[in-house]
Structures are given as C-alpha cells and as structure tokens.
Design a binder for these strands. Structure first.
Lengths: 197, 197
DNA sequence: CTCATTCTGATACTCGCAGTATCCGATACC
DNA sequence: GGTATCGGATACTGCGAGTATCAGAATGAG
C-alpha cells in the first residue's frame, strides 16, 4: 500500500497519548467509570483539547481503555487431566473477582455492555478470543477420552463464564472451584444413573 | 403499632400514581432506560412536580419500575421427570430473551445492576425468590432418585441462569434447551466414564 | 528562511437534563 | 375558616459533555 501522504504540521506527541492512557487507567481503578473529561485531562497533566483530539467522545475513551484492561493473556494449563486443567481455567476466571478493585471495574464494564452494544461486542470478542486460546486443553482431553468428542465447547465455556459473570455482577459470593468442575464434568444426576423418561 | 397521624392537607391522587407507573413502563419498553423526567411527566399527562413528589430521584423511579417488571411469577412444572421439568424451567428463563423489546430491557437492567449496587440487590433478590419457588421440582427429583441428594441447588440454578444472562447480555444467541438440560444433568464427561487422576 | 499547517494548553461557550424552588388553584383535615 | 398538602406550570441552578477559539510551539514544503 502507498505511504500515507506525510502529515503537514506538528505531530501528535506520543508522550501525551501515554499520559492520557495512564491517567484513565488509574482513574478507572480508583473510582470506576464515573470520571469527567476534565479530571482525565487534569490527571494526565494535559490540555482538555488534547484528550478530545484523540477520542472524539468519552465513550470512545472508555471503550479503548476497557479493551486494554480486558486484554490480559492467561496461561494455558497442562496438568495431565481435564479435571486439573479445568480447575486451573475456572480458578483463573474467578481470580478477577477476588480483587475488590478489579471486581468493581468488571461489574461496571459488564454494566456498560448492557447499555452499549459496542461495548458488548468488545467484551464478547475479547472473551471468546481468550476462551478459544485454551481449547487445546479440550483437544487433549478428547484424545484422552475424558471429554465427549461431540461436546459443545461454547456451551461448556459459557456455562462457567456465565456463572462467574452472573454471580460477580449481582454480588453473590463466588462458587467453589471443585464444585464447578465436578458439575461441568458429571452433572447433577446421580453417578452412573441412567435417566428414565 | 399506633395509627400514623392522619395527614393534614390534600391526599395524593392514586390515579396520578397509576398514570406515572404506566407511562414509565411504556417508555421503558419503547426506548429503554434513557428517558427524561419531563418525558415521563408529559407521557403521564401529569405535572413534573408530581413525579418528583413520589420519587425523589430518577434512580428511585427506575428502581421501582424495574422491580415491578422483573416480578413476574412463573409456573412450576410437574412433567413427571426431572429432565422434563428442567426443560420447562430453562425454556421459561430463555423466553424473556426471545422477545426483542424484553431482551433489550433485560440487558439494560442488568447493565444498571453492574453500576448500581441497589439495583444489583433488587435483581438478585427477585431472581432468587423466583428460583426458590421452583425448588419443589428438585425435591421431587431427589425422591425419584434423579438428582443427587447433596446437590448444590444454587450452583445448579445459577449455572443456567448465568448462561442465559451472560449470552443475553453479550448478544450471543441463546443455547438450545435440550443441550443445556443434558449438560446440567450429565456433564461433559463421556457417559459412565470414571475420571482417572 | 518563510509559510502553512497542525499540534498543545487554556479558557469560554452551548446544550441537555436532574433536581429545586415558587406560584396558584384545588382539596381535605381540624 | 384556617392551614397544610397535592396538582399543574414554569423558572432557576448545577454539572458535565462536546465545541469553539486563541496564542504559542513544532514540523514539513518550497
């Protein structure tokens, strides 16, 4: 592709970019989504106009910041058994909600997702990317015969992601890791029980 | 307790109460939570002050309205088998998200729950009440031997409530009822498979 | 070097809306 | 009849997002 026509006047200062990002992130962790644009500018030690030149809207600013906050890479476990790996994955998912500040921010981000479809898209995409990254775990489990080959992996992942999100959002204490893993693997019917209909 | 001292002047007009409630509900379904107090008053054909006399705050008004909206009683199934009953319960939970307007409102209510702890409390309480009402189903299932007697029922209910909420909130298509029920009852491990560790 | 252009911080302005205050007429208790 | 509250209407206050403007600095074009 052709080099973009070289910009004429003064170039945007990358240091300002960074100062703004840092300020928003700090404010987000301290006080949640409720910040004014003036606070952001002040905290960044930057002119109000410089913020609006980069983000046309407060929504844009927060969308970008929330995106960066959610995009945390997670280690892929390999404990040798599906139960072990799942425990790890579930525990990782739960970890966010143990830290009070992170939990508060997560709640608010999910809250925004409820009112702003673009935020919902962002969250969904980020979550799904993170999830698919750990699907090696399920491939291995199927090879070992610990997981049904035809299992609906989206259903599996969404079941525990949903549980965690639901409880976190409504302020219900997090579930025990082992109980969740056991429920996901074996369900609530009695062991070996075959359902009559 | 003593009768409250009889109020002195003119009494609040119940008709006005009702007109306001109806107006908010209508606006809520039409356009979601984003309504102005002037719109509410205008739609109700009522003075602005009369709205503020009843609800000191927009938040109060919406909290009350959302509460009434969520407080829908649900039939308790009795199909003769746990799988059948569960299908019914899951389908009922899913039903809300099939109607576009209701889905939109639900998303926004959950969104508010993320940012306002009082809304979260209200939603949690309402949901839990509705859930416990259908626990007869599980009692019967345990008697029939279709459910582990020591099953964590909150985990069971929150798993599918969470799934539905999570997918609804992020705009992911709803899961199939049968797949959910099957996963809850038997899990994702191969049938009869015993986990090695 | 000079000029045009776009950045930067600062300040002032518009606009929408929640919440408050005030008026005047109506209604109800004492 | 006196007084307190409700009802509708309207004006005012306060806050914060977004816009406009300005003077000074930086940078590429010619």
């Amino acid at each position: 592709m052709p080099t973009s026509p070289s910009p004429r006047g003064r170039r945007p200062d990358p240091a300002v970019d960074e100062k703004i990002r840092a300020a928003v992130l700090a404010l987000l962790l301290e006080r949640g989504l409720e910040m004014t644009m003036d606070e952001v500018a002040a905290r960044a030690g930057v002119g109000r106009a410089s913020v609006f030149r980069r983000y046309g809207t407060k929504r844009d600013l927060l969308l970008d910041t929330m995106g960066r906050l959610l995009d945390v890479h997670v280690a892929i476990p390999d404990t040798g058994s599906l139960a072990g790996d799942l425990r790890q994955v579930v525990a990782d998912t739960l970890a966010v909600w143990r830290d009070d500040r992170l939990a508060a921010v997560s709640r608010q981000v999910l809250g925004e997702a409820g009112r702003d479809p673009e935020v919902a898209d962002m969250v969904r995409t980020t979550m799904r990317e993170r999830m698919t990254r750990s699907w090696v775990v399920y491939d291995r489990a199927i090879e070992r015969g610990e997981l049904r080959p035809d299992a609906d992996l989206w259903l599996l992942t969404d079941l525990f992601a949903g549980l965690v999100v639901y409880r976190g959002l409504l302020g219900i204490g997090p579930p025990g890791v082992d109980a969740v893993v056991d429920a996901l693997l074996h369900g609530f019917a009695p062991q070996g029980g075959v359902e009559q209909h």
